[in-house]
Write a protein that binds this DNA or RNA. Structure first.
Lengths: 144, 144
DNA sequence: ATCCCTGCAAAGCCTTTGCAATGCA
DNA sequence: TGCATTGCAAAGGCTTTGCAGGGAT
């Protein structure tokens, strides 16, 4: 699912309606391909639809999450807000602890889901966040 | 660092003062050894100090986090609040997606910090959360 | 005797909710 | 036309802030 139209088709399949607001939100999510906060999404969408309300953005993000097209991210840093990621492929994240930049990390061998069980839990999924310094911040800290 | 007194010593070393409130908070964190929310910590501490304020709990938790004695956890489920974990040893977490139960997971071979770099980031740390069903919830869902 | 720390209350932020009006199907 | 969806405004939950009084050193 990689185009606005395809996502809108999914909306219809699920018995939901396609509105300008929803198209705009999906468009921002797909275009930015970033890890935006709800507020950033709201700001971007308001370029097209100045009067869209926060409630609508939240509603749509939750629907997209339910449909499995978007993943809510809490990067586990405490400092980070909740972000929304168009989860096309399963991937991990790496966050710069200095500037907050976030990038996707493809899954690697040796880091796959373990098949055995911890504490007798049936493991369904896992979330991995790497913390580090991005190239820019790394060179800045060396320079100091 | 595993006793109230040792933590209090750290307080003094850092030029901070040791108060009954701080002792009580540390005591709860060490005793429970759980993954409590700020509110749960507040409730527990109020058994000893009924008039302690939320602000004091938050202050102390942030100080402990700064000192590296406590780790703030956002388990990345969206549903989960921020929790506080006495981070004695480096470990991962596993969360039951049904009942919310949280357990520690020791680090495993093959899941160590990668020595190479993603996207030229210098990786400093990583956070891993496993999602699954705890034994109780797993057997309940089979039963249905 | 300092001045750090506490408690209170108010303010802040982000997110959710309720409801009437709107507009998609 | 019918009902999902929107926007607004208010409410909610958690966390932070400001300040005066109290307590640790």
């Amino acid at each position: 699912v990689t185009s606005v139209d395809k996502v809108c088709a999914r909306f219809r399949i699920e018995g939901r309606r396609v509105t300008p607001q929803r198209r705009a939100i999906v468009q921002v999510l797909l275009k930015e391909d970033a890890h935006l906060t709800a507020d950033q999404i709201l700001t971007q969408v308001r370029r097209q639809l100045p009067s869209i309300s926060p409630a609508t953005v939240y509603n749509t993000l939750h629907e997209l999450t339910e449909m499995g097209l978007v993943q809510e991210l809490d990067l586990g840093l405490g400092l980070e807000e909740r972000r929304y990621d168009v989860g096309v492929e399963k991937h991990d994240h790496i966050v710069c602890i200095s500037c907050g930049r976030i990038e996707d990390v493809p899954l690697r061998d040796g880091l796959n889901l373990p098949v055995d069980e911890y504490h007798n839990f049936k493991i369904v999924d896992r979330r991995v966040t790497y913390l580090g310094l991005c190239p820019d911040c790394a060179s800045n800290s060396e320079a100091q």
